[in-house]
């Protein structure tokens, strides 16, 4: 049906405040929410605003941040990856098994373990993506399958047991804390986020991820093959699950087939709270980092306030839904401002 009149030409010139509002709505919205939550707990919860507490939070968000950064790629293309939790478990047992092999020198074992972790994760992700695209299946189902497969494989590889006894230098690196407040694993997470941010924002590949999430058919008819990029997004998600497995090993020093249960849901929650649209095409990886922070800050803050363990999930669940509801109003307001 015929389109409306020429809206573009009627648009008013942007004012400074207009621009400021737009930026705060689009990019900084979640960051402001995080700030408010931090200030709230600093004022109300005892011990919240201490460096020990922040250190604890940084340690705790590392794994989820790494997982969620890869998840952001998949969700931006309009898919979902439910398998990252159990792929992480598989990678921890693969990595731990290699590391405890005393035939290798410690540094070689660590390096090999890292490659194996990342490689295993990437292969799982690539299989996810390939199956989805080859048979045009919903990623929800395919990755649900991979969740179970990887979990089973983790049991097979580990012979259903927990693997301990990682090399000393590795454990020491995991316990390293810089300037009294920045744990090494948090810095790894920040590094992953920065790489993800760079890829999404400055590379041709990143442009395709957004374009495919916005309108896959238009990308195809513009002379590209969207399947390649979608498979790549899943591969990246698997790859970050492998990196997250290394972080897990650094933090807990054990490889376990029952690691990572439910992690995929935390990762998805972080991405969504961070403002990435489940429909794809809209969002940012910095938002994902902030989303992961919000989840952990809420959890820690409530604990310090003396909230019962049973209350915590209720609050966090509410926040997840609230984030999506707010996103609905935010995008509506943004669209009104664009006119």
């Amino acid at each position: 049906m015929p389109e409306g009149t020429d809206r573009a030409s009627e648009r008013k010139p942007n004012t400074f405040w207009d621009n400021l509002l737009r930026i705060s709505m689009r990019e900084a919205g979640v960051a402001i929410a995080l700030l408010v939550i931090v200030l709230f707990f600093s004022a109300t919860a005892p011990y919240f605003a201490t460096s020990e507490n922040f250190l604890k939070i940084f340690v705790q968000i590392a794994i989820n941040t790494v997982l969620a950064s890869g998840m952001t790629f998949v969700i931006l293309t309009g898919g979902i990856d439910l398998s990252v939790g159990s792929v992480l478990a598989l990678c921890t047992v693969v990595g731990a098994t290699i590391m405890i092999d005393d035939r290798l020198p410690a540094w070689a074992a660590i390096l090999l373990a890292f490659i194996a972790c990342v490689g295993t994760g990437a292969i799982c992700g690539a299989v996810n993506g390939w199956v989805c695209e080859k048979w045009k299946l919903p990623s929800f189902i395919v990755t649900l399958g991979m969740l179970n497969i990887a979990s089973g494989l983790a049991r097979v590889v580990s012979n259903n047991s927990t693997i301990t006894g990682l090399p000393r230098p590795f454990v020491e690196f995991g316990n390293l804390i810089l300037w009294g407040v920045l744990p090494s694993i948090f810095l790894i997470a920040i590094g992953v986020i920065l790489i993800g941010w760079f890829v999404l924002r400055f590379t041709v590949f990143g442009r395709f991820i957004f374009a495919i999430g916005t309108n896959e058919e238009a990308v195809r008819l513009s002379g590209h093959n969207p399947r390649v990029y979608k498979i790549a997004a899943f591969t990246i998600s698997g790859l970050t699950a492998g990196v997250a497995a290394m972080v897990y090993l650094l933090r807990l020093n054990i490889g376990s087939p029952i690691a990572g249960i439910g992690y995929e849901l935390n990762a998805i929650a972080a991405v969504i709270i961070g403002g990435t649209s489940l429909a794809g095409g809209k969002g940012s990886i910095i938002g994902t980092l902030v989303g992961a922070c919000i989840l952990q800050v809420l959890s820690t803050g409530l604990q310090l306030l003396g909230a019962e363990d049973n209350v915590k999930p209720i609050v966090i669940g509410t926040v997840i839904v609230l984030a999506v509801v707010l996103d609905f109003y935010r995008s509506r307001l943004l669209r009104m401002m664009e006119r």
Partner: peptide
């Protein structure tokens, strides 16, 4: 439905 990336900018649509 098939030609444009509606939620992306004019420039991004042109260079795709």
């Amino acid at each position: 439905g098939q030609g444009l990336l509606l939620d992306m900018s004019c420039a991004e649509n042109i260079t795709i």
